[in-house]
Nucleic acid binder design. Structure first.
Ligand code: ZN
Ligand code: ZN
Ligand code: ZN
Ligand code: ZN
Lengths: 135, 135
DNA sequence: TTAAACTATAAAGCTACTATAAGGTCAATA
DNA sequence: TATTGACCTTATAGTAGCTTTATAGTTTAA
């Protein structure tokens, strides 16, 4: 299987596959005489794993870490679970931060209607005066 | 006022100030004979405005747009308000996406306790098998 | 006088790709 | 046979918003 077929199969661009190889996330495949990469089903599974991790918001570093655990399958899986717990807390703190932000933005927006000149815009005034009490 | 003092006043690094100048967000200040930048209070206000926008999650492009409105203060402020409305909806869709993600991650995490080997880890199995139904 | 602290510019590094450039390979067609 | 088109190769640059590093000149205090 060549790189284009693998790309279509998994739904990524060919450059992304080469990029993952370069980053050490995907093992370098064999090459044909002309230099073309030849992939196996294993590569397909590996790539699909990476993509599902990315969809879950895991960084490439975190994926690399998961792969290192997979390479040593008889260790206890506490580290895997801990990685996920950490990631969940990252996501939660992002959500919290964005919710705080949304409140600030909504309250800022409420300080203006559309009938003013820029000079008197409540939004710009709010930013300029630093009315950002709610943390 | 030199760059270090301005940086300390507003709470940013000196490089960040130079970066904003380079990006056209902060007007180039006068220079001393030795080339050192000399800032006025206006620069301080401008920089503080930028930082408050950044805290609100506005991109440098959005900030630039706001500045262009400020330079033309007798236009109606509808564009300002619209920019903020857009940004609020960006933030809201980010929150929604992250909440979906959190659910997936929590359900994935629930598929494992800490008493297994990596080989049998419910988390890794969940990712590998692509059990990501809940979109 | 010398060292610390400050300033300057330019360039690279960060994340996770995406895009572009310049070229080699292969199969089918005119 | 020549050429088109689709595919592959590597290398390099761009994205956002800085941060870090390198290299060097300037000011200030001990
Ligand atoms: Zn994470
Ligand atoms: Zn307004
Ligand atoms: Zn925005
Ligand atoms: Zn587990």
């Amino acid at each position: 299987m060549r790189i284009g077929q693998l790309a279509q199969l998994v739904g990524v661009e060919t450059q992304t596959i080469r990029f993952y190889e370069q980053q050490g996330l995907l093992p370098p495949p064999d090459r044909q005489d002309n230099g073309y990469r030849v992939y196996t089903e294993k590569h397909g599974e590996g790539l699909a794993f990476i993509r599902r991790c990315r969809i879950l918001g895991l960084s490439l570093a975190e994926i690399h870490e998961l792969q290192s655990y997979q390479d040593d399958p008889h260790q206890p899986c506490t580290a895997v679970n801990a990685l996920l717990d950490d990631h969940i807390s990252h996501v939660r703190s992002q959500i919290t931060a964005l919710q705080v932000l949304e409140k600030q933005l909504v309250s800022l927006r409420a300080s203006c209607n559309d009938d003013r000149e820029v000079e008197a815009c409540g939004v710009l005034a709010g930013i300029s005066e630093g009315n950002m009490h709610q943390q």
